[in-house]
Design a protein around this nucleic acid. Structure first.
Lengths: 224, 224, 224, 224
DNA sequence: AATGAATGAGAGTTCATTCAT
DNA sequence: GATGAATGAACTCTCATTCAT
């Protein structure tokens, strides 16, 4: 297997103004389709022929935009990474100090639900599987995604938790560890079942139940 | 890609008892070697040639014992499941009622350390990756492994937790949920880093630190 | 019966005793056919598919015997080099001292004819073209063939010429240079026409005429 | 592989005189660049993309001027043939009768050096290889080049030799054969080494030594 | 006239699988 | 029972060539 190359927007295929208008759209379309194929088949099992057919073009066209399968994969992933950004997942969360524990609980619940809902989306699960499955063979792959995914979430959560500590509502040795604990608690049941293929995408109610349980446990452990 | 067939222990080729004995030994040997190859290369990237060479036989011999690559893979996995049994992982744990919270903590710590050490072993990680990576494509695969792995552990843990509840040390709505929480807390840091390829196998000290943190959080949340 | 597995030194390409008997014959056959294809089409234009079809097998079979197109090409060439050996070309030439210039002339004529006849054979011409054509891109290729071909001939010729010098029949500053001159004179007309594709394989008479002319010029220049 | 089409100087696309002028300049430029590419890579290995990139245009532009790769190749070669003309190679040679053998020797030496220097130029060698390499597949190719190259030189040499015969300095059955012999003697060593890739471009001293040797042998053989 | 984009055909190579011995 | 040999199908990737703009 090769290395997974990074995208190289400007190869010998420098985007002319014309290309910028038409070609970039095509490029995006290819990436879009390729993502689906890679996610559903895995890197190894996905074939350029399959992707080309799904795009509705020829293999050679794929190679006009990406120098290799690995580069296409890289483009898909780096494009995907953007969608993982916390902003998109967390949405607009209330800012400022928390009045009391009830408000802290409400905030954690809100964020927890959004987080779990995101993690349980079929595409997210497929991506998780893909990356975990290949992480042993492509070391940077796992690192990149860990940073764009879990780590980013933990950082945001630890910000919230740190705030609650400052407000005198929570107590923790290390807010990052606490954030990791919270994230883990959120994933404890439904997300595990999903990952292992035991269940289809969960209902909102299931997600709410998991998060309630996680928040309760977390607060019981970390409140002052 | 094909389906992953289940093992077919009772081949259509058993002849004499002698053969059966000899053949079975060979069969085990093949599975043993194939496991290593599958775990280190992944299902797709592992080739029958590689396995045959590693076994020290010819590809045709492989096909004398297994009808296809998928069937061999299935045999490897079903054979592997046995090693996941809780007994092997938990070892001999103290039985009987807990005197006080300190003893409960000690027991959880002991079990947690064994559990995490097991989950962080390179082979376990490789297996986890392999199964998670293919779970989307081979539905029964994930289920089988979830039951043999996480679920089994949760069941044992919930036994312990239920005992502590009976002893009046812990309090929980549902000991199974609590067990899931404990397991998740154990996995929160080191194991995640490992999975995503951010770190090599952890030291005992790292494991101990993770488990201390998990036990502390868990008890803070669930003690009466 | 109690044997552990047969050794299989690794890949699927080591020659076992069985292979030695059957497979080596196949190997030779492949080389034989491949030579024809390479010679008539050139290295670049010859395709593995074409060769496989000509052999009457599949491409995969080719790859069972040779790791790559280049390796097959190499095998063809090194096999071909053997046929270039002077012994095969010169045949049995009279040994011992020459009595007079007439005998020297006769020996040179005999050898010259054999040499030119060999050089004018269609396969030899095709090989010459192939090697010269690729020599710029594969440096060792030209060297190998020069040594097996022209250089070898020059060495033998210079032996003969040196003998005549010792016999007091010829005079030259350097017998190797003289031998080079003789070889060049032999190639001056018919072989050039052939090389450039101006004429088909020459008749014996044409060869004889060329050699007579070359020998006459050579002796006029080098006799004492 | 296709046939190599002949040039089609009068394309079917000439429009206005202006265009014709501008277009012809472009056409020449393409041929110029394509020659370099063909010579350095060989016909098969040279790709239209490479040529287009080197020209600084698009592949489609190439096809606006030449109907196919083969036609472009043909145009390159027929354009190249012109540069092979004897005048350019021989330069201004002394005319008129030779006074004595020493003057004949001087003239042969002068011409021989120019000739060999020309034949040893990297571009000439590359062209020689290209043509010889493809001569088997493209019959007219070799003929065209033989006539423009070796044959032309032989004709000029035979003129010189014929003059010397008329002056009573040389004696030969056929001045054309003698000229062929001289040319061959010139090529006997350095040029052979070069062709087979054994040596880089020779120094002037090497060329001079070869020619001295060739002239000496030639005169020894052909003087009255 | 010039070109960016697209593509069918085919290159070398690998692999799971079969079968005569 | 074990194997060496063989293979069809599929892989990634390239190239000469065309066409709408």
């Amino acid at each position: 297997m090769g290395q997974i190359a990074q995208k190289s927007r400007g190869t010998d295929k420098i985007c002319s103004p014309v290309r910028a208008a038409r070609g970039d759209r095509r490029r995006e379309a290819i990436i879009e389709v390729a993502r689906e194929v890679f996610l559903s088949e895995g890197y190894g099992a996905a074939s350029m022929s399959t992707i080309a057919a799904a795009v509705g073009g020829s293999k050679a066209t794929l190679y006009a935009y990406f120098r290799s399968k690995a580069e296409l994969f890289g483009a898909v992933l780096s494009n995907t990474t953007e969608d993982l950004g916390g902003g998109r997942v967390f949405g607009e969360a209330p800012e400022g100090p928390c009045a009391d524990l009830a408000e802290a609980a409400a905030r954690l619940t809100l964020i927890g639900r959004r987080l779990l809902a995101f993690m349980c989306r079929p595409e997210t699960v497929a991506l998780y599987r893909l990356v975990i499955g290949e992480a042993g063979r492509f070391p940077e792959l796992g690192e990149t995604f860990y940073k764009a995914g879990p780590q980013e979430k933990i950082a945001r959560l630890s910000g919230l938790i740190g705030g609650c500590m400052a407000d005198g509502l929570l107590r923790a040795d290390d807010p990052v560890v606490a954030a990791g604990h919270f994230l883990s608690l959120c994933r404890a049941r439904t997300h595990q079942h999903l990952l292992w293929g035991l269940a289809p995408e969960p209902s909102e109610a299931q997600i709410a139940a998991d998060i309630d349980s996680a928040v309760r446990t977390f607060l019981a452990a970390y409140r002052v």
